[in-house]
């Protein structure tokens, strides 16, 4: 895949054009990524609304039917249900890692097994989340998908 960067002073915002002969999975992946780059999610914190860039989200957790969106240092509330966010964010590299957590795989720096046979995913901001074993294959699939691009 060839990359051509072109600076144009008359553009109001960056524009990405993907030229292809055939819509392969890599072309689709690039298109999905570009769509997600400046996609935002409307969240609340202290009764104020915030528009959060999806790429800034580390993970989403559901606790007592309330959904919390975790960014690098801040936590926000969101009104969507976890399964709705899972559908919305699946193309943005988010994967279900347990019954109540969606993880942005881009923020994952490693997984380790704990003494009590649980799995822990380490994130780039130093936090960690528990991973249920049955979701490991989804994490692997997403990583393979990203590495193939």
């Amino acid at each position: 895949m060839r990359l051509i960067l072109c600076e144009r002073q008359n553009l109001e915002e960056p524009e990405v054009t993907v030229a292809y002969r055939e819509m392969t999975k890599n072309v689709k992946r690039v298109a999905d990524y570009v769509r997600c780059v400046d996609r935002t999610l409307l969240c609340k914190k202290d009764n104020e609304e915030h528009s959060i860039l999806i790429n800034d989200i580390f993970y989403v957790e559901s606790v007592d039917k309330k959904v919390f969106v975790y960014c690098e240092k801040e936590v926000f509330r969101n009104n969507y249900r976890l399964y709705e966010l899972e559908e919305m964010l699946s193309r943005a590299g988010f994967v279900r890692v347990s019954k109540s957590v969606l993880l942005n795989v881009e923020k994952l720096i490693g997984i380790k097994t704990l003494v009590n046979s649980k799995l822990e995913a380490k994130l780039s901001n130093g936090e960690s989340v528990y991973v249920t074993r049955k979701y490991l294959k989804d994490i692997r699939s997403e990583l393979i998908r990203r590495n193939e691009g």
Binding site: I109, G110, T113, L119, R140, L143, R146, N147
Partner: peptide
């Protein structure tokens, strides 16, 4: 099962490192 799990985790960590090198 534990051996299989450790192997799976090693594969995933390898994929994460592979991504970082790219």
């Amino acid at each position: 099962d534990t051996i299989s799990l450790l192997s799976e985790v090693k594969t995933i960590n390898g994929l994460i490192e592979g991504e970082e090198h790219v």
